[in-house]
Nucleic acid binder design. Structure first.
Lengths: 217, 217
DNA sequence: CCCGGAACTTGAACACGTTCAACTGGGGGG
DNA sequence: CCCCCCAGTTGAACGTGTTCAAGTTCCGGG
């Protein structure tokens, strides 16, 4: 633990508090530095830019999500409940921060940004996320068709990203529509998995797996 | 035609040229104004900000896409060919601008931005796009299941947005992977439409339609 | 011919994110 | 005990997007 770690946390906490109070754009680096009692240049000693403050904050949420998801997975082996629980846990955690969610989406969408889910810098956290959905599936009482099994965790991760994107756009009170989306689409996904066993559907699923495999980097 | 329309076009043309030469960030409003032979304030008289230059440029591409798509639809009634043709036309048009595509994605992803596909300002162009996919389906020789028909154009538009997002991330030469994605997923979509008639699949489709209807604004 | 106003044009000024050369202080080697 | 080193810290300075009060040009009506 270096000398400056306390300062770093202080700056981050101050920034997050101000993001909530005023929003991202209205929070200036000067104001964050002043409020935290440091010089503006010092903030840049710990964070390479304003974006990185948001990234660091999102990193905290991801850690917390993994922890809460693990708790959910300990409770049940029902696939629907597991998937639903993990997705809801994510939405629960992000809910207080919906106000500046669009800011994070804006930087995350840029393929060149380190905070993009598909960037080299995010490989570790992306792998962790895919691993989480692997746990969701493998620890469940539902057996997944062989052809689909290897791709399913990655597919569910993409679905989670999609839900997150929907959440960003969701202006309904308490993001109720995102909750509704999860509650209606999770059972649907599980039903689709059962359907994938039908002979008539199988070859389509095989092709679908091929497409998804092609999308992977 | 107002007095200043020529100036407006000149500024936009200059900006687009400079975006290609130097990229978005390295193109300053001062440089655009100087190069176009106007004062910086004048550029702001015609465009409310740097974003709007990109938006205006994208508007041009959308118009061109509609025109080329119409040409494709005149040629064939085969649904696969129609859908494939319309998607490829879009990728063809955007191809020369892949370099600063991420810039556009960055502003378009913000729900508060006028250039977001889901914003109030984009309603007209979104309706036009959904209408385009309605033409794709209705002018084809394939008959679509009744339950699915009302939602299909909107669904295909969302798929198109997805393809566009994939294209933004596609670093392969000539965005070949996006082409491959289109070529493999379009026949898959058409097969899924046929599959939707199976009694065992029907109720799932009904639920799927319900989810999609819930996603709509 | 003149005048009023609207469209158009100007560039200095502002606040911002970011950089960087200079400074400080405390801990470890001589 | 001293000195040196470097992580930690400073704030002025740079270039940016954007604003705005002030000018200029142009057209239509009196």
């Amino acid at each position: 633990m270096d000398r400056g770690d306390h300062t770093k946390q202080l700056i981050l906490d101050t920034a997050v508090a101000m993001f909530h109070e005023r929003g991202y754009d209205a929070t200036t680096m000067r104001a964050v530095a002043t409020e935290a009692g440091v010089a503006v240049g010092n903030a840049y000693h710990y964070f390479s830019g304003k974006d990185e403050l948001v990234q660091a904050f999102y990193g905290r949420i991801q850690d917390e999500h993994r922890a809460r998801a693990a708790a959910v997975l300990r409770e049940t082996t029902d696939l629907t409940a597991r998937l639903r629980g993990v997705l809801h846990a994510g939405v629960d955690l992000m809910a207080p921060h919906h106000g500046f969610a669009s800011t994070f989406a804006r930087t995350a969408i840029d393929p060149a940004s380190p905070s993009s889910p598909f960037s080299a810098q995010s490989t570790a956290s992306a792998d962790a996320a895919v691993g989480l959905f692997r746990d969701v599936v493998e620890g469940s009482s539902t057996t997944v068709p062989r052809t689909l099994a290897p791709e399913l965790p990655h597919l569910l991760w993409l679905a989670y990203l999609g839900v997150t994107l929907f959440w960003v756009y969701d202006g309904s009170p308490g993001q109720a529509r995102t909750r509704a989306l999860i509650d209606s689409s999770v059972p649907l996904i599980v039903r689709l998995l059962r359907l994938a066993r039908l002979p008539a559907v199988r070859s389509v699923v095989a092709d679908l797996v091929g497409v998804v495999r092609g999308v992977r980097v």
